[in-house]
């Protein structure tokens, strides 16, 4: 019983990690086709906001919301100043955003120093068969899945979501139909960044907050989105975080976290080799 629970706990933890870190990138890379290498830095900014506001006396929940809003605004500024030039050009946007990520992380290092005061993990813990677990870590996967469902509702069940999907599919036609394409791009990128900040904020209590905070999230985020593919981003993200989480979780449980991370990356390479268009594409072809 206790073994099953601790395996499940590790699995849910990996799943949440992959899913949450990928949240913003699902939109920005999966839908908009922008290889945003500064994704990790947006998460870092979210964590910074939480650390600063929590240590100024704000409770965690409003601090997370504040972080989401801050990174969203920052994302919109980035879109306006940089990203706008690179739609449809994956490689150029990759190089440009890599530059941005260096500027953000090293700039933060200069401004705020190597680390910020941490945030205590809320909700406490519980024990199962004389091993103790953190409740917060079980909350995270639930939040991840919840936000993914919310994203689905927004994209597929609202007018705004329809406008977004139309614009991403064919900006010219959307424009001709009266959609303000520039505004849609701006807001969509903002939303993606906000989600990145949200995820970063959620992970602030679990680890050390420094300028390189985002580095550990970047690869898992890209891996999850790329393995998911573009055919159905929501379901794809669920599938890829589920599958990759299982790989990472089980190797993590058996051989430790370094091996887990390495197996995650190796599994990604093989999945991409076998399904270059992603897991959601496989599902889509089946369904027809």
């Amino acid at each position: 019983m206790s073994t099953i629970f601790s395996v499940l706990y590790i699995y849910l933890d990996s799943l949440a990690f992959l899913l949450l870190s990928a949240l913003g990138l699902i939109i920005i890379l999966g839908m908009m086709g922008v290889t945003n290498m500064a994704h990790g830095e947006f998460m870092m900014l979210g964590a910074y906001t939480v650390s600063l506001s929590c240590n100024a006396g704000l409770p965690l929940a409003p601090a997370v919301l504040l972080a989401t809003a801050t990174t969203g605004l920052l994302g919109m500024a980035t879109e306006r100043l940089i990203i706008r030039r690179f739609y449809g050009n994956l490689l150029q946007s990759l190089v440009a955003t890599w530059g941005l990520s260096l500027v953000l992380s090293q700039g933060m290092l200069i401004l705020m120093g190597p680390s910020l005061p941490g945030v205590p993990m809320p909700l406490g813990g519980f024990g199962v068969a004389d091993k103790s677990y953190a409740s917060y870590r079980l909350l995270l996967p639930a939040i991840g899945v919840g936000v993914l469902l919310l994203l689905w509702v927004v994209l597929f069940r609202t007018r705004a979501g329809m406008k977004i999907r139309a614009t991403m599919q064919n900006p010219e036609i959307a424009q001709a139909m009266g959609v303000n394409v520039k505004a849609v791009y701006l807001l969509t990128f903002g939303a993606g960044s906000a989600l990145a900040g949200f995820a970063g904020a959620l992970y602030a209590p679990t680890t050390v907050i420094g300028p390189l905070f985002g580095n550990s999230f970047l690869a898992p985020a890209f891996v999850t989105v790329v393995v998911s593919g573009g055919a159905d981003i929501i379901l794809g993200a669920a599938m890829s975080s589920g599958a990759l989480g299982a790989v990472e979780g089980s190797f993590n449980y058996l051989f430790g976290s370094v091996t887990g991370r390495m197996c995650l990356l190796v599994a990604t390479m093989f999945l991409l080799r076998c399904f270059p268009a992603g897991l959601s594409d496989v599902l889509n072809r089946r369904r027809r």
């Binding site: 290889t35 690869a219 390495m262 990356l265 390479m269 991409l272 080799r273």
Partner: peptide, 29 residues
Amino acid sequence: FLFYGGVSGVYVTIITMVSTMILETFMAQ
């Protein structure tokens, strides 16, 4: 592995990036 498997464009970039991280992680342990 990449080119005979039909991987192209930005996916090549991401796989190569992943491979550098794998090797770094591996060598560090």
